[in-house]
């Protein structure tokens, strides 16, 4: 294995370890979140975003790393996002957690994984058609919130922090 593969493996083991320790891999946690009855996944994701965004924005500010926005292609993000949401709610896993669920013994995740590999193969066949249709509608390109809103990232960051912490207080108050 090359350096990239080793680094990926080590990072993945830590990623899987934290996903499992946070108890976010389970089908019941995922569906519990979508039924708005168990906010474990939101707590986990939003905590990661809060901490991660500080480091990543600082590192990019000093030119140590480069940001890599995914394109804001309107048709792709809206339709793709909706399809993902629907499939996620039926399957009860997302791509990353399906693998983790398999690791903690929830072997029915195998059916989800096979489905997702099949879905990727279907997408590869649909790609030429989508490229000529949905993907041509409107593409704003790889844009970030600061330049789009015309506000410094150091003003946006505290807004996210306050918003997320308020949500946490709400979750704890309602015992979700």
């Amino acid at each position: 294995m090359n350096t990239g593969q080793w680094l990926g493996l080590v990072t993945g083991v830590l990623f899987g370890f934290l996903l499992q320790k946070g108890r976010v891999l389970r089908f019941d946690k995922q569906i519990g979140a979508l039924l708005l009855k168990d906010m474990t996944i939101f707590k986990f994701m939003l905590s990661a975003i809060m901490v991660g965004m500080v480091g990543i924005l600082l590192l990019s500010n000093f030119g140590i790393i480069t940001l890599s926005h995914k394109p804001m292609n309107v048709g792709a993000v809206l339709i793709g996002g909706a399809l993902f949401g629907a499939g996620w709610a039926i399957m009860g896993f997302c791509p990353g957690t399906s693998l983790g669920a398999l690791g903690e013994g929830r072997w029915h995740a195998v059916f989800a994984i096979i489905g997702m590999v099949a879905g990727a193969a279907v997408y590869a066949e649909l790609y030429p058609f989508l490229k000529a249709t949905v993907l041509t509608w409107k593409d704003f390109g790889k844009i970030g919130m600061p330049e789009t809103l015309g506000i410094s990232q150091w003003a946006i960051l505290p807004i996210f922090w306050v918003g997320i912490i308020s949500l946490f207080f709400l979750f704890e108050k309602k015992k979700l």
Partner: peptide
């Protein structure tokens, strides 16, 4: 669900 989610 997996097929739909991955296409999305």
């Amino acid at each position: 669900g997996g097929i739909i989610a991955m296409i999305g």
